[in-house]
Design a binder for these strands. Sequence first.
DNA 1: AGAGGTGGTG
DNA 2: CATGCACCACCTCT
Length: 608
Amino acid sequence: MDLKFDPNNPRFEYITDIEGANKALDVLEKASIIGVDVEGTGLDPHLEKLLLVQIGTEDTSYLFDPRALDLGKLERLKNLLENPKIIKLTHNGKFDYKFIKVQTGISMTNIYDTMLTEAILTAGVGRRLHSLQVLTQDYAQFVLKKDTRESFQSYTGPITDEQKSYSALDTLVLFPIFEGQTPKLKKEGMVNVAKLEFASTLVVGDMEIRGVHIDSDKWKQILKDLAKKRDEIAKNFQEMIRTYYRNGNQTDLFGAPVDAINMNSTTQLLDLFNNKLALDMPSTGAEILKTVNHPVAQVLAEYRGYEKLISAFGETLLAQVNRKTGRLHPDFMQMGTATGRFSCKDPNLQQIPRNSEEAPFRTCFTPEPGYKLVTADYSSIEMRILADLSGDEKMIDAFLNDLDMHSYTAALMFNKEYNKDFKKQYPDLRQAAKSIGFGLMYGMGPVGLAAQLKIEPKLAEEYMNLFFKSYPSVKGFLDRLSKDAVRNGWSSTPSGRKRWYTFPEKTDPEYRKKISSIERQAKNHPIQGTNADAMKYALVFLNERLRKENVDGSIVLTVHDEIVSEIRADQAEDWAKIQSEEMVRAGALFVKKVPVISEAFVSDVWEH
DNA sequence: AGAGGTGGTG
DNA sequence: CATGCACCACCTCT
């Protein structure tokens, strides 16, 4: 690899005035590909300060100092970064996009992201984090020092020579990585997948910048109510088990009884169940507790229900409300999974409990005054994908005729007549059909199905056979997916999104177990991954419509098959129609044999 | 610090 | 032969 720069002495221009900026732009405007990176005093674009915006060609990096120059006012710079014809090489461009947009108002377009590219080129195998350091070693064969990065943390002084060199390298090194990655993208047929990811980045950036509003007072009240119930149950529990412990009658300084054990410790719980109560339990999980015929187990299960909610969705979530915006700005990772789905963290808003009477957490997510939430989700999208990809005529017919899928399946399987009251007439049969339908998409076998339905494995196997007889193409389709994956070492969605597998040694004692696991993953990947593809297209389409139609609002959440946006009240109803239409249009890119359905509604709280 | 257990979401 | 996909948060224990 011939580098166009010297890693030990990179060329850069440090720009603090208009003349310097114009000279740099004279060069940059002639390039078709530029590298972009930013340095800030921290990670939060709302709270921290931009210290440098580096924009470079393959041999020189231009370091714009936003403390010396109002970058948002530099019309030529804005036009450069917003020019859709010029490719901006980035590494984790979402970060740079957000900082630049929040602090200068400039909205970068046409991003190429080396981190995302590496993620799609290695999905399922290898590292989950693709740092610039590692990619530099892989593609440019030198060691990128990273110790200077920390020097920007909370930094207020003038930019040092060392900081300049370091910052310059961060744009220069993007070029050899880009050169090394793009042939791989072509070879793997993943250019369009990459383009989809890059387009999604801007949507995710906007979504994270906007964040989502949460009613903290209401949230706290829910927690308070839950804690009261939990504490009462905990007290009962300690009471019940006191006699088994030597410290059972001890009291603290104020005369309150001391807890016999820590209810959150599985070690201590297992000791209680197995040694004191002689129950012989393998674990203390909910499934086991249900089967244990002892009041202590039931009380523990009840306690767990509350303790889970309080600990996982408690004050730590509220503590993440941004002090500047007053909203939550979670981190959506567009390649957070091996299948192409998003993951979400800090906080993970994709795992907020569904609303219940006791814990209506989602109702605490509300729009700003004057706005509405518009929620839309795909209707049984993964089943529709299965129908489409397998090409099963019966399953396709069921969706074409808009039947209740699981009822229809049960009717076919058990030779009953389908009608719209089927769900009421044969709830158990419908449930069995539903479990098989979902289970198959996860590669489940008879034993798993038996456990789920609490029936004998033998009967479960009969049920599965009935399912496959009802939908003759499905079994062959799924078996082909697992066979192909084991033969090729990867599976693929119709869009070309791949997932690779690492195979065990033949001598591995868990060889068969690991192969089975790969087979299940390979059955699921094209289905889940196609869902992910559709969602990403939908997000891109929706952001385009927001801009084109001049809608006052933004997408605020995405939860696998659901999109939530926050829209000015008078525009919300019209937007709801657009939102479901665009989701359908995106889904229809992949699902062509059956209809794609998305229903949207307008509300004042997040409800599902 | 990292692993294992548990349980929330789609 | 082994027996359900994809995640993240919190807790305890080492």
